[in-house]
């Protein structure tokens, strides 16, 4: 997946699953959109669907500090490199 494809899919998830439309890519999601820890866990489930692969507990914990769409895209890129293109 390209970066743009990842971004498009994440924005689609935010629209359909979280009813957050067109967030700025650097918005602090908690402060601006009330995106909370429950949403973060739900998002990880959506990312697993996107990757068609299960994330490990350690991988999920890495995501807990993420605050923006750009950071989410970075995270998905990183996980895709492991889960979609295993060495």
């Amino acid at each position: 997946m390209t970066r743009q494809e990842i971004q498009d899919k994440i924005l689609k998830i935010f629209s359909e699953e979280f009813e957050i439309e067109n967030p700025d890519l650097d918005d602090d999601l908690r402060d601006v959109h009330e995106f909370d820890s429950i949403d973060a866990i739900e998002l990880l489930g959506e990312i697993e669907k996107l990757l068609d692969s299960q994330l490990t507990q350690d991988e999920k914990k890495q995501a807990m500090g993420i605050r923006t769409i750009n950071q989410i895209c970075d995270y998905v890129e990183s996980m895709a490199s492991v889960h979609l293109n295993p060495a």
């Binding site: 429950i38 866990i41 739900e42 489930g45 697993e48 299960q54």
Partner: peptide, 14 residues
């Protein structure tokens, strides 16, 4: 199934 197990939602307890 571990996949099904992981499908328990974050909010299911709530």
């Amino acid at each position: 199934s571990s996949r099904e197990f992981a499908a328990i939602g974050a909010v299911d307890y709530l």
